[in-house]
């Protein structure tokens, strides 16, 4: 075990962490702002991966080029789910619990529709550049994760910019901080919610493409991705974009370091046990306020 091997592991862990961050950021956003705990979040990441995969395999469209299209498709799916499921559920007494159970249903439906039409076999998104590596001295960095990471950073920055520098984004925050105040300055809460939810799903779609550049994906992988989303979101503090970003990087590094010494399955056991511990002792997250 050489030093460069450890450094490589850490770097690939960080790259992975960035992707986990974008996978989680939308989930934390809807939970924090709309009080909607969307279990179906990562199933839409898988859907994004599938759409990108088919565009690549059938039409030879590069995943990077098809990304805007995927964002649009998933935003629309999010808007539909919002109208059909989330909006009615928001009338419940305990929105978090009701949305959690209802979106569990959505996750099952979407997962099994995918599995029905596209078979449950694992697939991987492999454009030519994804399998080559960049060398920095002795250290090699594979391009797949690197491109995924760059996509993730761009998406997070865009989301951050949207939330803090546009009127609608600020409206989202205002609604979160004070719903009555927001209604009284003329913010249309239904519209703001729809946009928030749509963006959240769109970000999941983009994350799915990034994930697919690294890992094999199949419909039922969504439940594992969901657990990672929970992990990152809880560690980062629900609803904080920056916190989620940091948490993603932190967890990625942990994965990177552990993976250098442990078999991969035990890394997962370790991480989920860690999540349990955090839930028990610091449910507001490590970077939350």
């Amino acid at each position: 075990m050489t030093l460069s091997y450890i450094i490589e592991s850490i770097i690939s862990g960080i790259l992975l962490g960035g992707i986990y961050a974008i996978l989680s950021v939308g989930f934390g956003l809807t939970w924090g702002t709309m009080k909607v705990l969307n279990i179906s979040h990562s199933v839409f990441a898988v859907l994004g991966a599938f759409v990108s995969y088919w565009l690549f395999v059938k039409l030879k469209v590069d995943p990077i080029l098809s990304l805007p299209l995927i964002v649009i498709i998933l935003f629309s799916s999010g808007a539909i789910i919002y109208k059909l499921v989330i909006r009615p559920v928001q009338r419940a007494k305990d929105v978090i619990m009701a949305s959690m159970v209802a979106t569990f249903g959505v996750a099952i439906v979407v997962e099994n529709v995918m599995s029905y039409f596209w078979r449950p076999d694992p697939r991987i998104l492999k454009p030519a550049y994804a399998s080559s590596s960049i060398f920095l001295g002795e250290i090699s960095i594979s391009q797949g994760p690197l491109i995924g990471f760059i996509m993730a950073i761009c998406a997070i920055s865009l989301l951050y910019w949207f939330l803090n520098h546009t009127y609608i984004g600020k409206g989202v925050q205002a609604t979160w901080q004070n719903p009555i105040g927001a209604a009284l300055v003329g913010i249309n809460q239904e519209r703001v919610s729809l946009i928030t939810f749509g963006l959240s799903i769109a970000s999941a779609g983009a994350a799915g493409v990034a994930m697919a550049l690294i890992y094999a994906f199949y419909p039922s992988v969504q439940s594992i991705w969901t657990l990672f989303v929970f992990l990152v979101t809880i560690v980062g503090g629900v609803g904080s974009v920056i916190g989620t970003g940091l948490a993603g990087l932190l967890i990625g590094s942990i994965i990177g370091i552990c993976a250098a010494f442990l078999p991969f399955v035990w890394v997962n056991v370790l991480l989920f046990a860690l999540l349990l511990v955090i839930l028990l002792f610091k449910p507001e997250g490590l970077f939350g306020n």
Binding site: L84, V85, A102, F104, G105, A107, I108, V109
Partner: peptide
């Protein structure tokens, strides 16, 4: 599973 996922949503709503 598709049917009972839908049913879950319908029941909750």
């Amino acid at each position: 599973r598709i049917l009972y996922g839908m049913l879950l949503v319908v029941v909750i709503i």
